[in-house]
Design a protein around this nucleic acid. Structure first.
Length: 149
DNA sequence: TAGGCCATCTGGTCCT
DNA sequence: AGGACCAGATGGCCTA
């Protein structure tokens, strides 16, 4: 079917993305008192996000001297203490790498979905939330077409 | 400059 | 025990 592509867009389908509330309900800010915020988190955004393992590995090697450990905070402030999972710095770094890879594959899926939903070529790149919402509307639109044929 | 978006880190929970 | 998944926090970049 030739419908995939640039024939319809949000305006054609009477989609007003702005009608969806974009405000997320923000929980009270979690207290981060024993871990520095990510000072290296914004390096070289033009790199593939998980190609930085070598650099992180250096940092890991530096920090891992003396085997410091991360402690899950668990039920901090509660009287009923949960079992805390203790991980090493190396394990924490490995988990960070896995998380980066996971987010990378998630973004790949978003990119693929962006290519499937119809937009005008000159439209700016859809955000992730816009992509999801437009995909929902697009699917509904196509289902309506099928039912009418 | 404020707000939106995103990448990353981190800890909690679930599952194998 | 450890990996996957998730959500909160944080900070940088970009645009109106």
């Amino acid at each position: 079917m030739e419908m995939q592509g640039r024939f319809i867009d949000s305006t054609v389908m009477n989609i007003n993305l702005m009608e969806y509330p974009h405000k997320y309900a923000l929980a009270p800010k979690q207290q981060v008192d024993d871990a520095p915020s990510c000072p290296i988190s914004q390096r070289q955004l033009n790199e593939p996000s998980w190609s930085r393992e070598a650099e992180d590995g250096v940092r890991t090697a530096q920090v891992a001297m003396g085997s410091p450990r991360y402690y899950s905070r668990g039920a901090r402030g509660n009287t009923k203490a949960k079992r805390r999972r203790i991980i090493t710095v190396v394990q924490r770094q490995a988990a960070n790498v896995r998380e980066r890879k996971r987010m990378f594959s998630l973004n790949e899926a978003f990119d693929e979905l962006r290519r499937k939903v119809p937009t005008f070529a000159y439209e700016k790149r859809l955000s992730r939330i816009e992509t999801l919402r437009l995909a929902i509307v697009y699917i509904s639109f196509m289902m309506g077409l099928l039912e009418n044929t």
